[in-house]
């Protein structure tokens, strides 16, 4: 356990110091790269709450990334740049959409659940494509980044980096608290044995739905940050391959582990960046290697990267 704690502290210290180092060596590109990675880590963290702990295999988590993004972009399009208001709308809209999708999807299970969450996200994706007033297929340039008053200037690369970093750490802690609360116990219990959970007097449905809504709202925050990061919104925020990627981050890092999703996001996105930056055959066809990597990880590294770290508990 101690080795894991040391690794966690080293990781956090690295991320906290990274912008200073990057600035010192004038490699500002890395600040942007790590910021993007951390935004996806937030999305993966939120998915892990329902996928890892709740056993709900949502194949449509990119929907909330899109809702968060559209909330900011549409408000900005109409001249409303107040970042707090935008954040409120992004979180509220994501939670509301998650409530509707969850209320229907959670009645089903297994493969039907995977398919119905995918179908709902496809619906939103096509809705985004047909919203011609907001860019339709081509997307929409963000007129200005969210205005967070004097608090954080999102135009400042480093300041924005630390905001994303803070949100990620806060969510990591929040999910840790949720999972270990009475509420989280019920979520985990109904994942490992639904019949027994019912037998001791809990109906899983409302608990699962609540977790689904929390995860949606958290991913909405990731969408809010992501659209500010790219400064450009496209329906591709909600593309189904994006949902697949977020899901893969969770699995790669280690399903149902606290820091696993963050680890997964880092490894996948940095690997993608590394491969696509290479010259020649590898750089041109990097997706071939990512695809193979994905297959191999699923076939051979069942417990994910967190399972390889020292002190990993064996509970199966």
């Amino acid at each position: 356990m101690r080795a894991r704690l040391v690794l966690l502290i080293v990781g956090i210290a690295f991320l906290a110091l990274a912008p200073l180092v990057a600035t010192a060596f004038d490699q500002l590109f890395y600040i942007d790269l790590l910021r993007r990675v951390m935004i996806f880590a937030i999305a993966a963290l939120s998915l892990n709450l329902i996928l890892g702990y709740g056993g709900m295999v949502s194949f449509g988590h990119a929907a909330y990334l899109g809702i968060g993004g559209y909330a900011v972009a549409i408000l900005a399009h109409h001249g409303i740049h107040n970042g707090f208001l935008q954040l409120g709308v992004a979180v509220g809209a994501s939670a509301l959409v998650a409530l509707v999708i969850g209320a229907i999807s959670i009645r089903t299970s297994g493969i039907y659940f995977i398919m119905i969450t995918l179908a709902f996200t496809q619906m939103l994706y096509f809705l985004g494509i047909s919203l011609d007033a907001y860019g339709g297929d081509d997307g929409l340039r963000l007129a200005a980044r969210s205005d967070l008053g004097g608090l954080v200037d999102l135009g400042n690369s480093t300041a924005f980096y630390y905001l994303v970093f803070a949100v990620m750490i806060a969510f990591l802690y929040l999910i840790h608290r949720i999972v270990n609360s009475r509420f989280g116990m019920v979520i985990r219990a109904s994942n490992s044995n639904e019949a027994r959970t019912r037998a001791i007097g809990f109906s899983p449905y409302p608990y699962r739905l609540a977790a689904f809504v929390i995860a949606g709202a958290m991913c909405g925050v990731a969408g809010y940050l992501f659209v500010n990061h790219t400064a450009y919104l496209t329906p591709d925020f909600m593309h189904w391959t994006r949902s697949g990627e977020i899901m893969f981050m969770v699995i790669l890092g280690g399903i149902g582990t606290s820091v696993g999703p963050i680890l997964g996001a880092f490894v996948l996105l940095l690997l993608e960046d590394l491969l696509s930056g290479m010259t020649g055959f590898v750089g041109q066809h990097w997706q071939l290697f990512i695809g193979l990597f994905l297959v191999l990880v699923v076939l051979f590294a069942k417990r994910g990267l967190a399972g390889l770290l020292p002190g990993a508990q064996r509970n199966d």
């Binding site: 996928l51 295999v57 194949f59 297994g110 493969i111 995977i114 391959t241 697949g244 899901m247 893969f248 699995i251 399903i255 066809h285 997706q287 071939l288 990512i290 695809g291 193979l292 990597f293 994905l294 297959v295 699923v298 076939l299 069942k302």
Partner: peptide, 29 residues
């Protein structure tokens, strides 16, 4: 690739075959 996945849960199957999609798309490219 797929034979070993029959006994796994749906999540593993979705991800491994998602990887195969990326692989085949790039292969034909």
């Amino acid at each position: 690739a797929l034979r070993t996945l029959y006994e796994r849960d749906h999540l593993d199957q979705v991800l491994a075959t998602f990887g195969l999609i990326l692989f085949f798309n790039e292969l034909v490219a």
